[in-house]
């Protein structure tokens, strides 16, 4: 395997990783601050993609489409929080899982009802189309580089928000003692709605960004959702930093595993068998990673000590 191919695959892993991060950040934030397991986070991803596809179709502007994905997902998040989610905070996790699973079904069928059963079209904008040459003769799609950039910018922005702003102080304070933060005059329900909408907006953004190179269809959020859960478990539930590290880890492991494992098995068995065994094992790799991390650090890489 050539060096160029390897570097390209590492870039692919990073790109996958940062998108997982944008998705997982909201999930881990909501879990950390509100203690809520939200299975419907993937639906917000889907809403972002559908909103972007609709607006891009109407206006032809990709940037407006991204703005729409943020706005639509944030609005959907805020509404769901006020109408449904806030009744779940005091409940146990099983109730939360059941209720948010019901939300997935409602969102999916609602989207199908609005948009029909056929996938929607959303494309990379013209100004990011095609590959660019990187040093060393690597050809890499401009859009994927842009995704890496956006993902890192989101990570930086989130860090600044959490570490440097009053909202961030409240979020962190609410994480450890919600009763006390209320006794200091912070409107906890507003804070929760805001945090939920923020997480939703990020999921929506991820959906729109990814939708341009994948398929905008009902149910697109669920597979990503599962990976996002793996990420927050590895990173430590509630930790944004953990989510970032774990996302990149999962992204790179999954990508390189899928490429290298079949090659590795080809050394010891027939090529077509190596292919089957290698790719089967590659698909399990991140779960194996998760298991190993949990054995070594039961509360995840950056999880609060249980």
């Amino acid at each position: 395997m050539s060096m160029i191919l390897l570097i390209e695959q590492v870039l692919n892993g990073l790109q996958f990783g940062v998108m997982l991060f944008v998705m997982a950040a909201g999930l881990t934030l909501v879990f950390g601050v509100m203690g809520l397991i939200n299975l419907a986070h993937g639906s917000l991803y889907m809403i972002g993609a559908f909103a972007a596809a609709t607006v891009a179709g109407m206006t032809g502007s990709f940037l407006l489409a991204l703005a729409a994905s943020l706005a639509a997902a944030a609005a959907a998040g805020a509404i769901v929080e006020v109408v449904v989610i806030r009744r779940l905070y005091a409940r146990d996790h099983l109730d939360q899982v059941l209720a948010t699973f019901a939300l997935i079904l409602i969102f999916s069928e609602g989207t199908r009802w609005l948009f029909g059963s056929f996938p929607l079209f959303l494309d990379v904008p013209d100004w990011l189309r095609g590959p660019v040459s990187l040093p060393g003769g690597i050809l890499y799609p401009a859009y994927r580089l842009a995704i890496i950039g956006v993902g890192l910018a989101v990570a930086l922005g989130l860090w600044a928000l959490i570490a440097r702003t009053r909202l961030g102080i409240r979020i962190r304070a609410g994480e450890s003692d919600r009763e006390m933060i209320a006794a200091l005059g912070v409107d906890i329900s507003k804070l929760y709605t805001l945090v939920f909408a923020l997480g939703a907006a990020l999921a929506g953004l991820a959906g729109a960004l990814v939708g341009a190179i994948q398929s905008v269809q009902v149910g697109m959020g669920e597979p990503v959702m599962i990976l996002a859960f793996v990420v927050i478990v590895i990173g430590g539930i509630g930790s944004i930093k953990g989510a970032l590290v774990a996302s990149l880890l999962v992204g790179v492991t999954d990508t390189l595993g899928g490429v290298l494992l079949p090659v590795a098995f080809a050394q010891i068995m027939q090529p077509s068998n190596a292919m089957l065994v290698g790719s089967a094992l590659a698909s399990m790799l991140i779960y194996i990673l998760m298991a190993v991390v949990l054995v070594v650090r039961p509360s995840g890489l950056y999880g609060a000590r249980a």
Binding site: I169, A173, E175, D177, M180, I181
Partner: peptide, 13 residues
Amino acid sequence: FPLLSVKENLETG
């Protein structure tokens, strides 16, 4: 708030 700095703790007020 144990994870917040002293300054941030004060600022929660």
